[in-house]
Every structure is written in C-alpha cells, then in structure tokens.
Design a protein around this nucleic acid. Structure first.
Lengths: 329, 329
DNA sequence: CTGTTAGCGCGTTCAG
DNA sequence: CTGAACGCGCTAACAG
C-alpha cells in the first residue's frame, strides 16, 4: 500500500504538506499543490480513511436504525426508500452509513447499546420507526451520548433533531378530500397502533376533521395489519359511508373486505406506496417523498455533528390518487 | 476515551496482554484474564475498532452491491430480504457491511471503482443483480483485486465465489407442476431479460420441460416488466393453455390481462414474494430464502478473506402456492 | 506465560 | 508557506 509518505517523497515535499493539500487547507502555494497532485496521480495514491479517522478522531460513521414491523417487513417499499435516500446522501457527504435493524438490538440495554455503537465508532444515529414504547431508545436519546435524528417523532434535545411531515394535517387533508368527494358523513377510521407517534397525530387530525365537518367518527385500532383492517371493515363497513385507513396496507384489507361483502364504500389510504397500483383499485393517498426525508435526516445528522443544536424540521407532502396504470407505466 | 493502555495500567499488566485477552489469544493464564476483564468492566472500556483495523490492516469491511432495476425497485421485498440477511450475518461475524447501490457506481470506470472501494477500506464485495452486460463489474471481478461473491451468476475464480439456486431446475419444476395440474399443452413463457444469468438458465429449464412433456412453447421477453407481460398476455394468452412467467411481477401483469380479457388461464410465477398475497389471486411459485442466500454470501466472503479459493455453491429451494390468506395471517 | 517496542497511515502542532 | 516530530489506539513480533 502506498501512503502519503511515498507521495511526499515523490513530490519532494513534507508529509504534512501532502496532508494539507488532501484536506484542502489554505496557505499552500499553487505550485506545491500541483506537484503533490501530480505525485498522487502518478503513484495512484488512495487515502486511507481508517488512518484518517484514527488520527482525527472523527469516523464520520453514522447508523441508520430501522424498525420494520412484521407488517411492513413484507412490503418494504417504504423502508427501502428510506434506506436508499440515506445511503445516497451519506455518500454525497462522504459519510459512512451502516444499516442496523431493530431486531439486532431489541434485547440490549442502554449500556449495551452505547457500547455497541461506540465500538463501531458511530457518531450519529438516524432512527426510523420509533414508538413511544421503545424505552431503551428513549433513554439513549435522553442520555445525549450520540447525535441522533429521529424520523416521524417529535423529539428534540441538544443532540437530537427530528424530521417529519405534519401527519395531523396530512391525515386531515386526505380524509377531507375523500369524504367531500363522496359526500360521506359516517366514517370508520382504522388507526395504526396507539403509542406510535404518527398514529396519535393522525387520530388528532381525524378528530379535528370530524369536528369541522360534523362527522360521525368511529375510531378503531388496526395495528397496521391488513387482516385487522379487513375484520374491522367486515364488522363496521356496512354501516358507514367511507373507510379511512392510516396505512395503504390496511386500506387494501378494507377494500378486499368490501369487495367480498359486495358493497361499495370509498376507501382512503395514507402512505402512497406503489404497491397499490398492483392491486388494481383506486384511492386517495398522501404522497411523501421518503427518499428525500431520509436524505434530509442525514444532512441533519451532519449539522449536528458540526456545531448546531437539535431542532425540528417539518417537510412537505402532496395529495395524490393512486391507480393501476399510474404505476406500471 | 479510555484505551487499552488505561486498562493495562488498571489491571497491572502490559498493553499487549490486554490486547491478547481481547482477541482471545491462547497462552494467557486464567488469572490474568480475569484481572484484565475486571479492569475492562470497571473502566467501561470499549475497544476501538478503527485503531484495530489500522494496526492489523484488516478492516473487516465488506460492501453489498445491489442492482435494483426500476421494476424491482418498486416492490423491494426481495432486495430487502437480501439486505437483511447480509446485515444480519455480517453482524454475527463481526464484519462491517455497507450497502451500495448500482446507481452510485454506474458511470465509474474500473479504476475509479477500485479507488472507491479501496478508499473505503473494503476487502470484499457481494454483488446482487449482475447481468452479462455489466462489463465494468466483470472487469473488476476478473482483476481479482477484491474478494467477491456473486449472487445468482455462475462466476468463479481465485478470488470470486458464487452462491445461487438452480434456476434451470427450479423453473422446470414449478412450470411442470402448473402445467400438469392444468393439463396444458400450449405454453406462453414470458422470460426476463436476455443476457441476465438467471433468465437464460430459466429459459433452458423451460426448453427442457417442453421437450420432456412434448409441449408447444412460445418464448417472449418480458423484461421483468409487469406492463410488458400484460401486453404479451393480451397478444398471445387466448391461444395458449397456460402462462408461465419468470417473475411474480410479470405474473401479476399476465393475470390482470387475463382478467380483463375475461378468460381463465393458469399462471405460474417464480420468486414467491409476499406481494402476491395482496393481489388476491393464486399461483404456483418457487420459494427461495433470500435472507439465507445472502447470509450464505457473507459467510462465503468470510471464507474468501481467510484462505479459501473461490467456489460455486448451489442452495436449495421449495415449490409453493401463494394465495391471499396465506399471507396476511 | 508476560512485557517491550516498533510501527499502521494520517492529522496536527510548532518551529523555521 | 513548509517540514520535523509526536501521537491516535491497537497489533504483532520478539525478548525475556
């Protein structure tokens, strides 16, 4: 392996000089810069990031911590988008990104978690899929040991930022659209799982909407499960004018139930996943740019690793209508 | 940060002794081992893997190189399974795994690729989704600069292993099952994309089957696209007894076409993805354990990084029938 | 079985 | 603007 020492010798300068041009320090004459770069080219020198990390004590390593539930694990479009966005942005910012699944840390204590991340020289963590029940992670966040960015949960402290869309508003708008389009009054809302941050936000949105439009609102917990949504729809669907679901997957369950009951009721989804197109039905959804959200999270980690304090960042979204041929073309 | 030096001092031993118990060297008395471990506990020492990597010149870092096509990108179940398996196994073997998408390296030259991986201190690479057209990657493999494991392509050299299921046999069996169950004679086979390794293998399987069962076989290229499969089925489906597809997504396209034409023909898929359950139809598929396959790939990388030479490894699979309620329960 | 010592490749003072 | 020298935390001979 060829090191900066070789480059220095080849260019006829000191080691530190090479280091300085490598790291774009000021106060280096153009001439030496040229000499050094030429030597680098000629020797095919590749900087050793490990040595740099050791020396500078900055690994630039971050972890993407993904909580995929059993339900979403099957249809991982959203998770994949998050991962792709984070990986892409990390590469752009020259940071190392490793992916960690919740399952790998589920039965670790806070102390073990810290040890785990520290031994991996991880400086920052992005958390996706956090629920209010994940006490260990909440402790980790509160300990302020690492720079953390939480996606879709309103947690901020000195070393913690969050990035999310306004789920309350989004749920409000998309449900309103569906309800007005169909002139519905009695609504079945199949929520996600209580104690999830987004679930509670979305429920709040629905309650607001019910008040504003003077609706009869029945809220039931669907646990993000298609099967559960299916059952709930069988149970209540016939007596309602529309079914609003807190996830697309549950919306599929609801639609299938309605089809089997052979009745029509408008169904409203949420995530806006491509999968919907394959089911061959239509519905309104929010459209979030998961790729961009997680890219934003990486940028935020970077800011945190620099100087800045934790902060909250709300991102935008659109309303959309998903249908079969939209997708496959 | 507390280092082995501190531990050594605290335990009253030499630095190297600490290093040795850390790395489970032989020839350390139980007594000193105990002393050292106690010091480690008391001080809350966490080994610095970066320093270890620098010193030992072994980073233990591998890259998972994923080629997700536009089609599969939408429904990333398979990719996610691969990623999860690799990440899981890498953690078990205490290796660092970073994920890289083809898109990030698409327009790099071999030289740039080498530089990229070298600067990241990557010692081994797992390649998923390689096609015969990826010349740069083939050069990289041929250069034997890195230890590489290719998934689903029969490439082996001194530093390259491959891991795959027998696609020819799998396609043969699953199609045979479908065809015999339905007593079909005239078959439309919607293949993937020529020049893909698996595509050619699967076509060979179909040709073999056609010969063995004396079938009339029409082969068309579907490019793994649902839309293309849909078109082909509109075009030929009515004149055939069954449609065999080289992927589940194409099978969905075929099914939707048949539904719209309002005719029944048995359809046979391949991958066995969960998504099928959401479509609410039935078909035969192969069932591969993607998670296990990529875990195997990581193990193979590990072997390669040790002593062993490249080799080929065929994994098992099952036949299955996917249907709606299978999935959501 | 344990301790001493010399690097690994790079970043960073601090003199010149 | 440049260079010599030290140290990051650890591993790996080698000596005892």
């Amino acid at each position: 392996m060829i090191s900066i020492k070789d480059v220095a010798k080849h260019a006829g300068v000191a080691i530190s000089t090479v280091s300085k041009v490598l790291n774009h320090y000021p106060n280096i004459s153009d001439e030496t810069k040229k000499k050094v770069n030429q030597a680098i080219d000629e020797l095919g020198f590749v900087p050793n990031s490990i040595a740099a990390a050791l020396s500078s004590k900055q690994s630039g390593r971050i972890a993407l911590l993904m909580n995929l539930t059993t339900q979403t694990q099957a249809i991982d479009e959203i998770g994949m988008q998050y991962m792709a966005g984070a990986i892409w942005q990390a590469e752009k910012l020259k940071m190392d990104l490793i992916t960690v699944f919740f399952s790998m840390i589920r039965d670790k204590s806070v102390q073990e978690l810290k040890t785990y991340f520290r031994s991996q020289n991880i400086e920052g963590i992005i958390v996706y899929g956090l629920s209010k029940d994940d006490t260990v992670l909440h402790e980790l966040i509160a300990s302020m040991t690492f720079k953390i960015v939480v996606i879709d949960a309103p947690i901020v402290n000195r070393t913690t930022s969050c990035v999310w869309i306004d789920h309350k508003q989004a749920q409000y708008e998309i449900a309103k659209k569906t309800i007005l389009e169909n002139n519905a009054k009695r609504i079945l809302y199949i929520a996600g799982k209580r104690n999830g941050y987004v679930t509670d936000e979305r429920i709040a949105g629905m309650e607001q909407l019910a008040e504003d439009l003077n609706l009869t609102l029945l809220i039931r917990e669907g646990y993000f499960s298609e099967l559960e949504a299916r059952k709930l729809t069988f149970q209540y669907g016939a007596y309602k004018d529309a079914v609003v679901c807190a996830s697309d997957l549950m919306a599929i369950g609801a639609m299938n139930a309605l089809t089997e009951m052979d009745i029509f009721r408008p169904v409203c989804g949420f995530d806006g996943i491509t999968l919907m197109g394959y089911v061959g039905k239509q519905m309104n959804t929010v459209r979030q740019n998961f790729f961009q959200i997680s890219a934003e999270a990486v940028k935020e980690i970077r800011a945190l690793l620099g100087d800045s304090e934790g902060r909250e960042q709300k991102l935008g979204y659109e309303l959309a209508r998903m249908q079969y041929l939209d997708i496959i073309c």
